[in-house]
């Protein structure tokens, strides 16, 4: 554990809780992509199955349980409790275009051919692109609520901070996992456009709207 990873994890946690609280408080999930949330639920489920097979630390296990519960809680709010507020007309990204290639890639480029390892790899590849339906939705509606922008910023920062963590771990522990590093870089690049808009608009008190 180092400061970059801790900040990354906290940023990730903040993003997930921010979304959950926003939906709960406003009694609405308008502007949130249900498809991205489904993808994140698949990501957490396939990655954290190792809760049953390997133990790293209390910290890791607790975080995994929180991420899983919050993710399924978000799905429950979006597709059940506040379903009438879900803006499915604008959530039109085809997620099979992400689910299938990520699955194929996880069979092609993987550290070891075991069920748990292929599922872990799949979760890494799918996570890298899971935000695309949400970013597509923002581009279709041309705007995002400020709290949604904060959510996206925290979620994007998490992997960017993990990149710093991997650089640090490379020099201090000789840690080098190219699958997660390259996927993490791709994931962060997808947010760059959004980061630019966030810094130039939202941080100056303006609403995020596209030209």
């Amino acid at each position: 554990m180092n400061i970059f990873r801790l900040c990354g994890d906290l940023s990730h946690l903040l993003a997930i809780l921010l979304l959950l609280v926003k939906i709960w408080k406003t009694r609405s999930c308008a502007g949130i992509s249900g498809k991205s949330q489904i993808l994140f639920a698949i990501v957490y489920t396939t990655r954290y199955l190792d809760l049953f097979t390997s133990f790293v630390s209390i910290y890791n296990s607790v975080m995994k349980i929180v991420f899983l519960s919050a993710s399924y809680g978000t799905l429950y709010l979006m597709f059940y409790k506040f379903k009438p507020t879900y803006d499915h007309n604008h959530d039109s990204f085809r997620i099979l275009y992400l689910i299938v290639p990520a699955l194929v890639l996880s069979f092609v480029i993987v550290h070891a051919y075991t069920l748990m390892e292929v599922l872990w790899t799949y979760s890494i590849y799918l996570e890298a692109v899971a935000i695309m339906p949400q970013l597509f939705m923002v581009s279709r509606t041309g705007e995002a609520e400020t709290i949604t922008s904060h959510y996206l910023f925290a979620l994007g920062s998490y992997r960017a901070l993990y990149i710093l963590n991997w650089i640090y771990r490379y020099y201090t522990e000789d840690f080098l996992d190219l699958i997660v590093i390259i996927a993490g870089i791709v994931q962060t690049i997808l947010y760059c456009d959004f980061f630019y808009l966030y810094i130039t608009k939202v941080l100056k008190g303006k609403r995020l709207s596209l030209p």
Binding site: H12, F67, Y113
Partner: peptide
């Protein structure tokens, strides 16, 4: 046997 890497991150 196949050796799996240990994943210690989230």
């Amino acid at each position: 046997p196949v050796t799996e890497p240990e994943h210690d991150e989230l």
